[in-house]
Design a protein around this nucleic acid. Sequence first.
DNA 1: CTAATTCATTAGCTTGAACTAATTGATTGA
DNA 2: TCAATCAATTAGTTCAAGCTAATGAATTAG
Lengths: 111, 111
Amino acid sequence: MIDAVQNPVTTVMRALADPTRRAVFERVFESKEISVAELTRGSGVTQGAISQHLKSLKQAGLVAERAEGRNVYYRAAPQGLEPLVEWMDHYGVFWRERFQNLRTLLKEIDP
Amino acid sequence: MIDAVQNPVTTVMRALADPTRRAVFERVFESKEISVAELTRGSGVTQGAISQHLKSLKQAGLVAERAEGRNVYYRAAPQGLEPLVEWMDHYGVFWRERFQNLRTLLKEIDP
DNA sequence: CTAATTCATTAGCTTGAACTAATTGATTGA
DNA sequence: TCAATCAATTAGTTCAAGCTAATGAATTAG
């Protein structure tokens, strides 16, 4: 049972399964845009490690980058989560547990 | 940046990140109830490997078991996916992309 | 120009994960 | 009873993943 070459679900899951790397993604997401140096501060790992994590996040489609001068700014790409959403949706998890919220939510939006 | 002892999100993500193990979960889910021997057939790995995968799926709260005679039947426990749902919900992924579906869905259920 | 900063990459180490093969305990069928 | 089946566990191997330390390329500050 091997993914032919590499299933996107596997890529995204693996990227987010590591706590350190997931923390990096979370910080990038919260920051709108953030440099590698800034990410390294308070991360508990070296700059090289951060760069490696960013690389796999990027390959998973979860972050994008923008170079400016000697800095490289990263931003989150939440569309990268889509494979996860699809996979979970296939298992019908969302609607089941959130049915009661739907009506109230809809009324807030379109009263 | 280490999970204190072990974050549930990490546990679930790691459990599902492996293609073989995820395939096991998918088969369990589709089967309502399925024995280890049956899971082993056509899995491409040995029975021992399947048992190991089931063990970590169980620890992640993704499957439950029922022993009967010399068989052990496994069933999916989709509530185990809740940590994932919460985590992704925190990133606002769901509603954004699925707003247009909500109205039609609601009308089907409560016309 | 020189020194310092930022980031990516690489080699090397260590650890954990996935697997097999084999064993064991339990249950069932002949 | 005895052989066979089912499932869990264990020891042992292999390989990948995460990390550090070090280096190098590019940019900027003095």
